[in-house]
Design a protein around this nucleic acid. Sequence first.
DNA 1: CAAACCTTGACACAGTCGTGGTAATGTTGG
DNA 2: CCAACATTACCACGACTGTGTCAAGGTTTG
Lengths: 116, 116
Amino acid sequence: MDGLTIHEASQTTGWSARMLRYVEQSGLVTPGRTGAGYRIYGAAELQRLRTLKELLARFDVALSDVAFAARLERDSVLRVAIDEWLSATAERPDEVQPDNWLRFEQAKHERLLQAA
Amino acid sequence: MDGLTIHEASQTTGWSARMLRYVEQSGLVTPGRTGAGYRIYGAAELQRLRTLKELLARFDVALSDVAFAARLERDSVLRVAIDEWLSATAERPDEVQPDNWLRFEQAKHERLLQAA
DNA sequence: CAAACCTTGACACAGTCGTGGTAATGTTGG
DNA sequence: CCAACATTACCACGACTGTGTCAAGGTTTG
């Protein structure tokens, strides 16, 4: 078997075993399992855990925020709906040319749908 | 003065006055103020409040999630960092052709930076 | 087989979110 | 001027996040 057990992974990543289970439950890093159900962390998972820790610290972002970003990435309908709301919200700085503005929104919308 | 006071806005949007202040504090809908400091909600703010309510209900999303999405939209460094982490995370379904994968990531990265 | 792991489930606790209330004080309109 | 609004600053409370610990039981290995 190549891959570390949860306690070994805990020591090389800095996450506690408890938190490794919690991170898995949040859907962000899912290790494989042995036949008996033991978690096994491979090199990819270990790397992802380390960079995740760094990401959270660097930007002062919560685990649940990253989980939500993942949901946004998965669910393009939600992503577009939120992006449209934010675009319409965007503090237009004073001058609002009504027809250019509409074309701007449409273009943005299309760009978003295309990226999905 | 055109625009509604907070209690009038409360009645036409379905948000409580308390929540209107909270939504403002979260940075999502910021009404103007009279000279004495009273909030005044114009047609644009009222519309944004109604669509925000609908958005939250439709997708079962929290206010803080939309606030985080707004932060993502504003801070392109954060957005790219999270998106890179998620991309590297993406459950590659079995076959990993190592060189195509790298070019794929680079292209995605460039698309993201361009959109910023 | 016994020690040293692993599993899930639960209790606990501080912190934040969403939401309501109240108090003390300022503003506006008839 | 007074009633009916507004403001900010607090207290409260349930739900969820993040984190630790413990219990009851299964697995692996010297």
